[in-house]
Computed example of a mutant assay.
Amino acid sequence: MKLLCLAAALALTGVAAHADSVDTLREFSRDVRTARADFTQTVTSPDGAKKKVSSGTFEFARPNRFRFAYRKPFEQLIVSDGKKVWLHDPDLNQVSIRAFDQALGATPAALLSGGGLERDFELSVLPARDGLDWVKAVPRTKGGGVETLQIGFKGRQLAALEIVDAFGQRSLMQFAELATNFAAVDATYRFVPPAGADVVEQPR
C-alpha cells in the first residue's frame, strides 16, 4: 500500500502535554485547505522481517482532491478530483478508475484531504515518540482494509502517518518540505489516460 505508557510520576504531565495532539489534528483538518510534501514510505511485513521503501510527492486540496505520485523505485500515480479516483501504472500502461466513495472510505487520503474527520474516525491521544506527538485514528466503519492510523505532528506541522492494515502490515509515511494553503490548481487533480493505455473502470 499503493495507513505506550508514561511512568506514574509523569502521568499527569504527559497527559497535559499530549492532550493537544488531537486538537492539532482537528486544527489541521479545519485550517489547512491545501498542502503538498515529499514523502518516504516504509512498508513492513507483519512479522517485521521484510521492508520495502518507496518515495514520491503528495498533494491535496479540500475537499477530497489529492495526488500521490510515487517516483522510486517504480512510478505510480493516484489522482482524485473528488468524484473519481485514477490509478495509473506506467510500466503496465494501465489505468484503473473507481468512484471516489468506493475507493476511499476511511483511508489515509480521506483522513488528510476529506471533510469528515470526526464522522469517519474515532480519535485518541498517544504518547509522544520519535520526537513527535501522535494521534490514533480508528475507522468507525470496518471492512475498508485499514485497522488503525497514527498521525504524527512536530509542533503544528504534519510529519508522519502510520497505517496498520487488516493483515498486520505496517506502512510508515514520513513527510518533508511541507507547504500549506497555496492556491490550488484544478489540473493537478484531473487525469487523462495516455493514448493506448488499458483503461478499466470499476462499476458502481
Rank of each mutant, 00 (worst) to 15 (best):
M1I: 04
M1C: 00
K2R: 09
L4R: 10
L6M: 09
L6S: 14
A8G: 07
A8P: 02
A9V: 09
A9F: 07
L12M: 10
T13Q: 14
V15P: 00
A16G: 06
A16S: 08
A17T: 10
H18K: 10
D20L: 08
V22K: 06
D23E: 14
T24D: 02
T24N: 06
L25G: 03
L25F: 08
L25H: 05
E27T: 13
E27S: 15
F28T: 07
F28C: 05
S29M: 06
S29F: 11
V32D: 03
V32H: 01
V32P: 00
V32S: 02
R36G: 12
R36I: 02
D38Q: 15
F39P: 03
T40S: 12
Q41D: 10
Q41L: 12
T42A: 14
V43C: 09
V43K: 07
P46N: 09
D47K: 02
G48Q: 12
G48L: 14
K50C: 00
K51V: 13
K51T: 15
K52L: 13
K52D: 15
T57W: 02
E59P: 01
A61E: 01
A61H: 04
F66Y: 12
F68H: 01
A69K: 10
A69N: 09
Y70K: 07
Y70H: 14
R71N: 10
K72E: 15
E75K: 12
E75N: 11
G82S: 14
K84C: 09
K84E: 15
K84D: 15
V85L: 05
W86Q: 05
P90D: 08
L92D: 10
N93F: 04
Q94G: 01
Q94L: 05
V95P: 00
I97T: 03
A99R: 12
F100E: 07
D101W: 09
D101Y: 12
A106W: 01
T107G: 08
P108A: 07
P108E: 04
A109I: 05
A109D: 00
A110C: 04
L111D: 03
L111Y: 04
G115M: 14
L117Y: 09
R119L: 08
D120E: 10
F121R: 03
F121C: 04
S124I: 11
S124M: 11
P127E: 08
A128N: 05
A128S: 11
R129Y: 02
D130N: 14
D130K: 08
G131C: 12
G131E: 11
G131R: 11
G131W: 13
L132W: 13
D133V: 10
D133M: 11
W134A: 07
A137I: 11
P139Y: 06
R140T: 07
K142L: 06
G143R: 02
G145H: 01
T148Q: 14
Q150L: 11
Q150T: 06
K154F: 03
G155D: 07
Q157L: 05
L158A: 00
A160N: 01
V164Q: 06
R170D: 10
S171T: 15
L172W: 00
M173C: 08
M173N: 08
M173F: 15
Q174H: 10
F175V: 01
A176W: 00
A179C: 00
A179G: 05
A179L: 08
N181W: 09
N181H: 09
N181K: 06
A184N: 04
D186F: 08
A187M: 07
Y189D: 11
Y189L: 12
A195Y: 02
A195C: 03
A195F: 05
A195G: 10
V200Q: 15
E201Q: 14
Q202S: 13
Q202F: 14
